[in-house]
């Protein structure tokens, strides 16, 4: 089967088995190693990508579902303003990670920024917890995302504009 989609802003086309995992395609065919192929059961979150703007576990996406979509991996996310905001906020909050989960955690945080809403603390932690990481200090990660949201939404986070 020919699978055509937009990958990090570029049109791509490749031959793939319909049920081949999107995570495997991205890692092995395109060399996009920012995402990890770990649990392969949609549990750990280390393979997240944006699929038509939605954060998904790419290990649970068969190739045929990717046809005609827009896929953004961490490599593509790094060129966005959201990434710059998230990276700076995590660094300033001292919420550094171990190097395995950074990409996924940043993208999870980025999804909150891109949603341009004002999520509660519980909602923020729910999204960040979609990535399983033993290295994260929860309060620091929460603080980093709040800072990032304040920065991107303008004004003090939580206050109506």
């Amino acid at each position: 089967m020919i699978v055509e989609f937009i990958l990090n802003g570029e049109d791509v086309s490749l031959k793939a088995d319909p049920l081949e995992r999107l995570s495997d395609l991205l890692r092995e065919r395109f060399g996009l190693t920012s995402l990890m192929s770990d649990c392969r059961e949609g549990v750990c979150g280390k393979c997240v990508v944006f699929l038509d703007g939605l954060l998904v576990n790419s290990c649970m996406v068969p190739a045929f579902k990717a046809r005609g979509t827009e896929v953004v991996t961490y490599e593509g996310f790094k060129s966005t303003d959201s990434y710059a905001t998230v990276e700076r906020s995590f660094r300033e909050a001292g919420a550094e990670l171990c190097g395995f989960c950074d990409s996924a955690m940043y993208m999870a945080a980025g999804s909150l920024i891109d949603a341009a809403s004002r999520p509660s603390e519980e909602e923020i932690m729910e999204v960040l917890s979609s990535v399983y990481c033993r290295c994260v200090t929860p309060s620091r990660a929460l603080g980093a995302v709040r800072t990032a949201l304040e920065s991107s939404l303008g004004g003090k986070y939580g206050r109506a504009r």
Partner: peptide, 15 residues
């Protein structure tokens, strides 16, 4: 493995 309930950051209390 599927039943092994991994702890998540959202479950952390104030510390």
């Amino acid at each position: 493995f599927r039943r092994y309930g991994l702890w998540r950051a959202k479950d952390a209390p104030p510390i």
